[in-house]
Structures are given as structure tokens and as C-alpha cells.
């Protein structure tokens, strides 16, 4: 069991970092959460209408759009990173906004990555709603919007899964956020665009594997807590 000692080392490091409320670590968690939540907010604001539209109306190009979303669900993050970098670079189309090396740039690339994922999962959960329940809503006098609302509510478990999957991908993102965010911490260690994942990359580069794993443990714990809160909220709402 001696060879599994590293787990113990990482675990104690993670706990002691958290207990000390280590300011750099807190700022890294803060940036990670803000960026991921903002991307989730924007992503779901885009995904929900698209998912509803694609599952309720028939129009030319619908199949193509669905296919595009399916491809987007597996989009490698490096592609998103390069594209966003080229868009935000000083001489690029959006260079004037000065967004490169900011959390906003990371929000953009994460949004690009998670929106198709959220949309795709939402589509499949909306399609899973029983046709008879949709008909029941109409027969009880629901108009188009009210019918859509019933479908959304009936699919709420799948919708939440979509949001959690999106959040999970956002917070676990490395490739694109390191490219457009730059993994920047100020000289005092306070994070500007450093997230838990990019901090892990840095620690691995420095050879501090246990420290990197400690950050990984914190990341997983964070995802766990967020999931737990979401399920708890859903339970309360469902009652």
C-alpha cells in the first residue's frame, strides 16, 4: 500500500489548503466558479429556445441544425480555443474590445463549448416527453407557449441533467481557457484567469503532482457540491 501514499498526501494537502482558506486557492475557485456559471447562464439562455424550437416546429434545415449540434457536442476544446483566440486577437475582428487574457474570453470559449452539449441533452429530454401528455395540455386549452412550458416542466429532470453536464464540462475545461485566458495569476498569487484546471496544468509542469491532484480533489468536491445543491433544489421544487 506504500505506493498509494500519494493519495493520502494529496488528500491532506487539499484539506489543509481548504482549511487555511489559502487566498490564492480561494481566488482560483472563485474564478473557476464565476466563469463556469456565467458560461452556463449564457449557454442555457441560448440552448433552451433552440431546443424548444427544434423539438416543436418543423422547418427546412432542422435536420442539418440537429446534426450541427451533435457535432458541436464533441467539439474538441482546442478548436474552440484557437477560434476564440483568432477572434479576440488584437488585429482580429473583435480585437478592439480588448478581451484577450480576461475572464470574459474564457466565458466566451466555454460558452462555445457547452452550448451544443446543453442543447443536445435538452433536445433528447424534450423529445422524451410523452406525446399524450403534450396532447393533454392542448386539449385542456394550452396555447403554444403554455404547451412548450408543460413540455419543459415534464422534462425538468433531463433539463437539469443538461445544465449539470454543461457546468461539468465548463468547469473541467482546460484547453481553450488556457489559450484565451492565459492562466494568469497576479504576483501575489491571486487568480486573474487561473482556474482549478489550469492551475493543475501549472503544477504538473512544475512536477508537483501531489499538489496538482490536491487541486483535482478540490475540483471534484466542488462539482459534487454543485450537483448536490441542484438536486436538492429540484427536490424542493418538485414537492
Amino acid at each position: 500500500m506504500e505506493s498509494f501514499h500519494f493519495l493520502w498526501v494529496s488528500l491532506t494537502q487539499a484539506v489543509s489548503l481548504l482549511l487555511r482558506l489559502d487566498p490564492p486557492l480561494i481566488s482560483i475557485i472563485d474564478v473557476s466558479l464565476r466563469v463556469a456559471f456565467t458560461a452556463l447562464l449564457i449557454g442555457s439562455a441560448i440552448a433552451i429556445p433552440i431546443a424548444v424550437l427544434l423539438t416543436s416546429k418543423n422547418f427546412p434545415g432542422r435536420q442539418f441544425l440537429r446534426m450541427l449540434i451533435n457535432v458541436g457536442m464533441g467539439l474538441p476544446s482546442v478548436i474552440a480555443g484557437v477560434v476564440v483566440l483568432l477572434l479576440l486577437t488584437a488585429r482580429g475582428p473583435f480585437g478592439a474590445f480588448n478581451l484577450l487574457w480576461t475572464p470574459t474570453a474564457m466565458v466566451i470559449s466555454q460558452t462555445v463549448l457547452i452550448t451544443p452539449l446543453i442543447t443536445g441533452v435538452m433536445i433528447s429530454s424534450l423529445l422524451g416527453v410523452d406525446q399524450r401528455v403534450k396532447d393533454a395540455a392542448v386539449s385542456l386549452g394550452a396555447n403554444r407557449a403554455q404547451r412548450a412550458l408543460v413540455i419543459l416542466r415534464e422534462a425538468h429532470y433531463g433539463m437539469l441533467t443538461a445544465l449539470m453536464a454543461g457546468f461539468g464540462r465548463a468547469i473541467a475545461e482546460v484547453g481553450s481557457v488556457i489559450m484565451v485566458g492565459g492562466n494568469i495569476a497576479w504576483a501575489d498569487g491571486i487568480s486573474h484567469t487561473r482556474t482549478l484546471t489550469t492551475a493543475m496544468i501549472l503544477e504538473v509542469r512544475r512536477g508537483n503532482f501531489e499538489q496538482a491532484l490536491a487541486l483535482g480533489i478540490i475540483l471534484l468536491t466542488l462539482v459534487l457540491v454543485v450537483n448536490w445543491i441542484a438536486i436538492w433544489l429540484q427536490r424542493r421544487a418538485g414537492r
Binding site: R34, T38, L41, T102, T104, R153, A237, R239
Partner: peptide, 28 residues
């Protein structure tokens, strides 16, 4: 009743996210 609860939940979640978001962008 549960629909309004759902709405409240969504509003809470989205406001939290928005709060995070605004500060994230303001952080630059």
C-alpha cells in the same frame, strides 16, 4: 403551487449565476 416554486428556483439559480457573471466581467 409547484410551478411557482419551480419558477422561484429558476430565478434564484439564474440570479446567482448572473451575479457571478457580472462580477466576472467586471473583474477585468
Amino acid at each position: 403551487i409547484d410551478r411557482s416554486k419551480l419558477t422561484v428556483m429558476l430565478v434564484v439559480v439564474f440570479c446567482t449565476a448572473l451575479m457571478f457573471g457580472v462580477t466576472a466581467i467586471g473583474g477585468a
